[in-house]
Design a protein around this nucleic acid. Structure first.
Lengths: 203, 203
DNA sequence: AAGTTAAACGAACGGTCGTACTTTCTTCTC
DNA sequence: GAGAAGAAAGTACGACCGTTCGTTTAACTT
């Protein structure tokens, strides 16, 4: 167990969480039931339960697992690009790719769960909010770097810009799913492109 | 019954639907259960059930009721303003007011339910999608009028603009709720203002 | 290969879910 | 005010919920 192999339990736990995140992206975290996971994964209900000890812990673990997936699909590709505008562009491209690929069958895990828990105080909401905050902190950092390198105009309000790009990106995925209309992705991409260009020096 | 008075049954039905929409805005349409409505409204479970005949019909009726509420709070105020930019501005102001008032305790009913059902085919999703479509058709109509009156530049892509404003407006409410941060409303308002100004002639 | 620990099982719990009945009471109509 | 129509109550159903328990099987350690 000093090498890379996984203990049996850890392996099962990951399987459960991956499925839980998939379900949650499409039907919300409340749609994830222990009995359902057990049936679909052909494990006993108690076998699923023991890994987490409570429904809430399962939900929290699912949020953490989804955040890790998000990081791998969006943050890492961005970090692979050079600082400044290239990284900013890589970031939003990766984000859009992640939404339509689809990494999660129900679109973005966080779009679904934010809407589900934003008005429901508790540990789950706090965990989701924390993941969201970490993500927007990261986008702001990338945009700030771009501004400091002169790739964006000095007056650029980074927080405001991050908010707007966030809104535009999320809306693309949501509209595409709701209306079965891939054109929404294009609209989203176009909006992000032109919003970024308004903050770009000497047009 | 030719006068304005309501039959007893219709009155109860409305009470149920109002509560159902309130719950759904905060916890989703699946969070609306017949037993819960019965307990909270001090009616018997069967008393609630009889009005709709099935859970799905209750959900569909809730969507219709919420759409009517939305229309009253957002569409009507906009129609009261003169065509062109005044109406466009009235529209987005009313929308933002509706989100924070709050008309629904969990923010926008449609933000919550779209995210819940966008990846779940069925009659409920279709009803939500239809309401959304009616709404964006209306915003596009208002923007088109403004363009035709010369209040927006002739090249304005109305559908694209509507998409972006929609995204920005929704994001304000969502962020404000998730992070308990009223500044999100201001960001949203600011984004809408500046996006509209980019489509406004001779700056 | 044996010994130990971790993982998964299976059955059962009290609750709540949506739905199906029949019965009782209100309310509207004439 | 009597009769018809409608609304609400009451009860019961099977299904699934999260959770607890004691037991059994599998995996890891040495």
């Amino acid at each position: 167990m000093t090498d890379g192999r996984l203990l049996k339990g850890e392996q099962t736990r990951r399987t459960i969480l991956a499925r839980a995140a998939d379900i949650a992206s499409a039907e919300g975290l409340e749609g994830v039931s222990i009995g359902r996971l057990a049936t679909e994964l052909k494990i006993s209900k108690s076998g699923v339960f023991t890994h987490f000890g409570s429904k809430e812990e399962l939900q929290l673990a699912t949020v953490r697992a989804a955040a890790e997936t998000f990081r791998r699909h969006v943050v890492e590709p961005a970090l692979a690009a050079p600082e400044g505008m290239p990284r900013v562009r890589a970031l939003y491209e990766a984000w859009q790719r992640y939404q339509r690929e689809p990494v999660f069958p129900g679109g973005c895990f966080f779009y679904a769960t934010v809407a589900e828990f934003d008005a429901r105080p508790g540990r789950v909401r706090d965990a989701i909010a924390k993941a969201e905050r970490a993500w927007s902190d990261f986008t702001e950092r990338c945009l700030r770097e771009a501004r400091d390198l002169g790739h964006l105009t000095p007056e650029t309000d980074v927080a405001q810009l991050a908010f707007e790009l966030h809104a535009l990106c999320r809306a693309g995925g949501a509209n595409a799913l709701l209306h079965d209309d891939n054109a929404a992705y294009a609209r989203s991409a176009q909006a992000i492109r032109s919003r970024l260009s308004t903050a770009t020096p000497h047009p």
